[in-house]
Deep mutational scan, measured.
Amino acid sequence: MEVRTIKVFTTVDNINLHTQVVDMSMTYGQQFGPTYLDGADVTKIKPHNSHEGKTFYVLPNDDTLRVEAFEYYHTTDPSFLGRYMSALNHTKKWKYPQVNGLTSIKWADNNCYLATALLTLQQIELKFNPPALQDAYYRARAGEAANFCALILAYCNKTVGELGDVRETMSYLFQHANLDSCKRVLNVVCKTCGQQQTTLKGVEAVMYMGTLSYEQFKKGVQIPCTCGKQATKYLVQQESPFVMMSAPPAQYELKHGTFTCASEYTGNYQCGHYKHITSKETLYCIDGALLTKSSEYKGPITDVFYKENSYTTTIK
């Protein structure tokens, strides 16, 4: 009895394709271990004539594949690729409408935090270190965002349907971005203890939790000093293409032309909904596939993004 075979390709990165001759009487799992086709788990399936010449994702289970996976995804987590594939199996079914010149995501599976993050990423200057993220990001900007969303979920250790947080998501993504040249110098002034300067680099240099107003941050924000008295913390120097200011959701007025974009969060910790506000020729609110415009805006804002380049204080 002759062994019926077909020729397929296996890959971990969709760049390096490895030619395989597979036995049609055995499952993919018996031949390769966990195997995925377009995100779908085909591990328990036997090869079919229609699979001839198709590319299958496999887990990096030998040295060659491990090197290829690390170079593309910059992670050695053995569960990463499987999590990416199972997320992709959902995100490829989502709709990605162009809204006001940006790629958004039609609401499904509690994905409003991903839509808000995706919209924000198209408006701030950011370059990702893992080629996987950078490639998928370019495709997302062009309207094909399924891979990018699935990668975000995998890097953030999230599953489809789980509630997510924009600030946490951005923080994970910033860790995989090139923020080497970003720098922030802060000064804390206390009447009792004097003053202390701190220099922050990388992710810490672009994120701040405690106030939404970048102007206020430049002037000074009140913080408790270690001595128990009130101290003032203010920005001395900022070198970065953008800054992200966050605070627990509270009524906040966004003035046209003073910011790049913002995240609105309605609801409580267990259950809520994100919308995205962007400042173009007027203010726009993007909620999944829905767009509304207004000249002014007041609502429960939790993150505001500002364009920056270089700032030095005039406070002496």
Rank of each mutant, 00 (worst) to 15 (best):
T5V: 11
T5I: 10
I6Q: 10
V8F: 02
V8S: 05
N14A: 13
L17G: 03
V21R: 12
S25I: 15
S25R: 11
S25V: 12
G29V: 07
P34M: 15
D38E: 12
G39S: 14
K44F: 13
K44W: 13
E52R: 10
T55W: 08
T55R: 10
V58F: 11
L65S: 10
R66L: 11
H74M: 07
T75Q: 12
P78S: 13
G82F: 14
S86G: 10
K95N: 14
V99M: 15
T103F: 07
I105L: 05
I105M: 03
K106L: 09
K106F: 12
D109M: 07
N110I: 00
N110D: 06
N111Q: 02
N111Y: 02
N111D: 02
C112A: 04
Y113G: 03
L114T: 02
A115I: 05
T116K: 03
A117D: 00
L121E: 02
I124W: 07
K127W: 06
L133T: 03
D135V: 07
D135N: 09
D135S: 09
R141P: 04
C149F: 03
C149A: 09
L163R: 15
R167N: 04
T169E: 00
T169I: 14
Y172S: 14
F174N: 03
H176I: 06
A177N: 04
D180H: 10
D180F: 07
K183I: 08
V185M: 03
V188S: 07
V189F: 10
K191Y: 09
C193A: 00
Q195V: 15
L200N: 02
L200V: 12
E204Q: 15
A205R: 01
G210L: 03
T211A: 11
Y214C: 03
F217K: 04
F217D: 04
V221E: 04
V221P: 04
Q222W: 06
P224N: 14
K229C: 05
L235H: 00
Q237A: 11
M245L: 07
S246W: 06
P248M: 12
H256E: 09
G257N: 06
G257K: 03
F259P: 00
A262K: 05
T266W: 05
N268V: 08
Y274E: 01
H276E: 01
H276F: 13
S279A: 10
Y284T: 14
I286H: 07
D287H: 00
T292C: 08
K293C: 10
K298P: 04
N309C: 15
I315F: 15
